[in-house]
Design a protein around this nucleic acid. Structure first.
Lengths: 108, 108
DNA sequence: TCTAATTTTGACACATTATGTCAATAGGGT
DNA sequence: ACCCTATTGACATAATGTGTCAAAATTAGA
């Protein structure tokens, strides 16, 4: 595995990998985001929550596919809700049904 | 639809329907749960968060399938994270992959 | 309608958690 | 040693969640 990242990495790990690929120091990225270096460091290591806004800004800064990052971001949040739950998979499937139902009936 | 509940109802709505079927007043159920009536009322209407513990206790009180309630409870939490997100479905699928990966590698 | 039971609403104090800022510390490379 | 980078922890403050209570609204029954 030289290029590409594991699918099980967190959004934080993913963002760190991308930043390292670009060889950008936290200092510079944090400045572009207008946040403290400490916060960005903690976000990459999962110690602080990442917001959707930061994810989108980083997609711009890194010139990286925004949808890809957003999916990683959202799936992380989902995973957090069902971690260690035996019924996690079942809950995911029910949630998917609900989303589809809502989407199908939204336009009415 | 006379018997059975819609799959898109929230856990709160589901719990209310079950309670109404049993013709139990909030007052009695709240007493069994040892919580304030106001809180239970708000939980059923989605104004206050329901905890896993309350869900399990209610499964006992109502003699209702606990797994069914838990799945409804968890899928609600998942849905909350991806509501209004265009990439919700995609995120759900990625989350499912991650869960399966984690499960498969947990025993090592 | 009147009454009682049930439910809802809102306000409040309190606890818990999240967030931003900063400085000290640690680590790597030259 | 130095410099650059990253991490850690402490702190104050903000935001959010929780329990309690009483008043208001709703419902059901006589």
């Amino acid at each position: 595995m030289s290029i590409g990242f594991m699918s099980t990495e967190t959004i934080g790990e993913k963002l760190r990998h991308i930043r390292e690929e670009k060889e950008l120091p936290l200092r510079k990225v944090a400045a572009l985001l207008d946040i403290d270096v400490a916060i960005l460091s903690k976000m990459e290591r999962g110690e602080r929550r990442i917001t959707k806004e930061v994810v989108l800004k980083l997609a711009n800064i890194y010139d990286y596919n925004a949808d890809d990052l957003l999916v990683s971001f959202l799936s992380d949040k989902i995973l957090y809700e069902i971690q260690d739950e035996d019924l996690g998979i079942e809950a995911l499937k029910v949630a998917e049904e609900k989303v589809k139902y809502i989407k199908a009936n939204r336009k009415k």
